[in-house]
Amino acid sequence: MKLVGLVGTNATHSTNRQLLQYMQRHFANQSTLTICEIADLPAFNEPADRTVPAAVQELSDKIEAADGVIFATPEYDHSIPAALKSAIEWLSYTTRPLINKPVLIVGASNGALGTSRAQAHLRQILEAPELKALIVPNVSFMLGHSLQAFDEQGALIDQAKVGELDNAFNAFVNFVTLADKLLPSSQFFNQTKQFSWKQITDGED
């Protein structure tokens, strides 16, 4: 299974990146996880000509080619970071590769709550009509106190958390397989990739 893991921050040091790197190794026998960064994407500014910046196209191509996407988000001010929102806006405004793409949301934060509010926002965002990602229902993974969560080799220290992550990942793998079977007959399948906020009608909501 080919998956893309999106590091939801432009910070140099990120425990969300660490989490994805751990998942990459830990689930290596079940999947190939390609880790993508958003630090080099330009800030979204709604260009009138809808030109896709090269870095956005590259990210979009990787998502298109993947069987599923894992978003690893920090929490800034009860929501997702502006940098991640900007990346999502580029994708929704230009290439729309997330339509019908199975998505798992995970997040790490140094506080106790482990990005619970940011994840709730991200779920709502990814369900917007111009994104229409297929978020795996009832599954998420939240890692609190993340600065203390990894050992020097970058492995998760708490075995209970490893178990939680295993369950979330297995549920996601099943969901990806299931979605693959369901989708060709789905009504979403021929979703148009042309989009403008102007054209969104109530019907689409």
Partner: peptide, 19 residues
């Protein structure tokens, strides 16, 4: 405005600078 059911990244960005 509302972009993708949430606030635009540009607005989120200034709020992050101011926090």
């Amino acid at each position: 405005p509302e972009h993708n059911h949430s606030i635009p990244s540009a607005l989120k960005s200034i709020l992050e600078w101011l926090s």
